[in-house]
């Protein structure tokens, strides 16, 4: 057994930017992978000592338990306001928020849009699974038309409930955003692409280029009431057509 632990056989090593705490996320959820990618990027860019993260309210409310960097827990939707002050007061630090769709696109819309509009030098990691996971599967601003949730039990009726919001496209229109991209983490190829996107975002942040937003369209097998595999398939068939993957704004567009 000890032989296997030799360095030359090492195929994967958990980054030290993650703690050893056991994740509370549901099996099949994308948060664990996204946490790992963010942490690996922080390690690879040697930013652990100067990273300050902001956790949201939602499924990832306890993100600060898992990231081995200094972290603040914000009130629901307010993470970009905290990040604004922190990045202005510690201009060389790597400041990022980690937010879900309810947090970023509903209760925190004002904070999100204005932080992006001011071009605050921060990374926003936006995990969009079209539902409020933690509170038990209620309709989110990104819930698709006709999609069922506990507060749209017969499907989202856009006449009554409004249409799903494309936040990334919305903030990409603001001059303060520098890099806006939409990715996924349900397949290895997408995981690699997302990591590259996150790395770019943190690099641009360190170059003080303004607001970097990485949206990750993810699943919520518990909230969607599907098996993990089925939820990933459903995501490809339903979420991706409305939330197409790829770069929405890159520095070259400017």
């Amino acid at each position: 057994m000890e032989d296997i632990k030799k360095a030359e056989y090492l195929a994967y090593k958990k980054t030290e930017v993650l703690t050893d705490k056991v994740l509370h996320y549901c099996p099949g959820c994308g948060h664990g992978t996204i946490h790992r990618l963010v942490a690996e990027v922080i390690e690879e860019l040697d930013l652990q000592h100067k990273t300050i993260g902001i956790a949201p309210v939602g499924c990832s409310v306890l993100a600060y338990e898992y990231f081995n960097v200094d972290f603040q827990e914000a009130a629901h939707g307010r993470a970009p306001a905290l990040a604004t002050a922190i990045s202005r007061l510690y201009p060389d630090h790597a400041v990022f928020t980690y937010q879900g769709d309810g947090d970023l696109a509903a209760i925190g819309t004002a904070e999100t849009i204005h932080a992006c509009n001011r071009g605050e030098n921060i990374v926003i990691v936006f995990v969009n699974n079209g539902i409020y996971g933690m509170t038990g599967g209620q309709m989110a601003p990104t819930t698709l038309e006709n999609m069922k949730s506990s507060t749209s039990p017969y499907g989202r009726d856009v006449k009554m409930m409004g249409s799903p919001m494309k936040m990334s496209e919305l903030v990409a229109n603001l001059p303060g955003t520098h890099y806006v991209t939409r990715q996924a983490v349900h397949k290895p190829g997408h995981v690699r692409k997302t990591k590259r996107a996150l790395k770019k975002a943190f690099q641009y942040q360190q170059e003080k280029k303004g607001t970097q937003l990485v949206e990750i369209v993810s699943n919520c097998n518990s909230g969607w009431k599907m098996t993990p595999n089925k939820s990933n398939q459903w995501m490809e068939e339903n979420m991706f057509p409305f939330f197409p993957l790829g770069d929405i704004k890159t520095p070259d567009d400017k």
Binding site: I52, I54, Q72, A74, A75, R78, A81, L82, A83, T84, A85, I86, L89, Y90, A110, E111, H114
Partner: peptide
């Protein structure tokens, strides 16, 4: 709301 949360972020640091 944003202003007090900016204060939160600053004070937390």
């Amino acid at each position: 709301v944003a202003a007090i949360n900016m204060v939160y972020g600053a004070a937390g640091a």
